[in-house]
């Protein structure tokens, strides 16, 4: 039994223009203590996947198929009350817009205390004590717990949100673009801090980001999402050294190398697929330089190759310099 597993998950949003198929069959497996980097362009379904796990999707979202297994139990079959108890205590999340994730009318410390008291039978003073510890842990002055969010800088708010996510010592942490709103210096500090904390606390983590550099620094495993599906996944080092899927190759070509001189950067031609009416066959085929007839008719399954997983009919033939 894996620690955490997603099997054949499908989800769509019902909109006035039709069904937006945000997740079109996702499989994922994680061991305890692992860090998974989930990469992909905006609108590929990364965030929807994160929200599905905590069952925090908006009302117009419908999960039609699949299972989300945590310690072997299907989260999709839990009652609302059971789910409420799992949230934050076992699985917590750092949201994409951590800047606005704090309620402006309550003191930052109180918002963390509230989360702790919702799950643990301890006194308010003990919870406050823990807030101080958490603040020191993420590098914030515990004396500022009594201040309001607007009195914090962007970097401080980000740290506070991370401290809040760690408040109940969760087993699984989903971090959705936790540093996008920050400048590079703060980004680096926060990423390093989160990495350090993960090792120290033995947390399992899903890192949702479009920034492959961050994944390469912090994660063990990387999965690439495209058009609501995982198109490639393997160990980070393997995947960066020898990307097999044409889309992954394109993603990697579009980042400037850190150490070598900057050659030509290439972007991926075309637009991400419409999830309202995804293309037939492989969803990447309209943008793919290698696409042939079969790519337009048959959807490639995610299959084992070179120790990783890839969903491409011609993965063996596609070169990587």
């Amino acid at each position: 039994m894996s620690f955490f597993e997603i099997q054949g998950l499908r989800m769509h949003y019902a909109t006035s223009r039709g069904r937006v198929k945000a997740i079109r069959g996702v499989d994922l497996k994680m061991d305890k203590g692992q860090a998974l980097g989930l990469a992909g362009e905006s609108g590929c379904g990364k965030t929807s996947l994160g929200l599905s796990i905590l069952r925090l999707l908006p009302n117009n979202a419908h999960i039609t198929r699949g299972r989300i297994l945590f310690h072997g139990e299907d989260l999709l079959r839990k009652s609302e009350e059971e789910m409420r108890r799992i949230r934050w205590k076992y699985i917590s999340m750092v949201f994409q817009s951590a800047m606005n994730a704090l309620n402006p009318v309550y003191r930052v410390g109180d918002q963390i205390v509230e989360a702790i008291l919702a799950h643990e039978d301890i006194t308010k003073d003990e919870a406050k004590e823990r807030v101080s510890e958490l603040f020191s842990l993420v590098g914030l002055d515990p004396g500022r717990a009594g201040q309001y969010p607007h009195e914090y800088s962007g970097g401080m708010r980000q740290r506070a949100v991370i401290a809040m996510a760690l408040a109940c010592h969760p087993e699984l942490l989903i971090a959705d673009e936790p540093t996008t709103a920050l400048d590079v210096i703060h980004q680096k500090q926060i990423i390093e801090k989160m990495d350090e904390l993960r090792e120290k606390l033995g947390m399992t983590m899903i890192y949702i980001t479009h920034d492959i550099a961050i994944i390469s620094e912090t994660c063990d495993v990387m999965a690439v999402m495209y058009g609501g599906k995982i198109v490639e996944s393997s160990k980070v080092r393997d995947l960066l050294r020898r990307p097999m899927h044409p889309y992954t190759q394109g993603l990697i070509r579009s980042i400037p190398p850190l150490h070598d001189s900057v050659g030509r950067l290439t972007s991926i031609e075309g637009e991400p697929p419409s999830l309202l009416s995804p293309p037939r066959g492989c969803s990447f085929n309209p943008r793919c330089a290698y696409s042939r007839d079969i790519c337009r008719t048959s959807e490639p399954p995610l299959r084992q190759l070179n120790g990783g997983l890839v969903a491409c009919h011609f993965a063996e033939e596609i070169p990587w310099p």
Partner: peptide, 12 residues
């Protein structure tokens, strides 16, 4: 966003 956070925190 803070409403989503509040729900994610497992508040009733």
């Amino acid at each position: 966003d803070y409403i989503l956070t509040a729900r994610a925190k497992g508040l009733s």
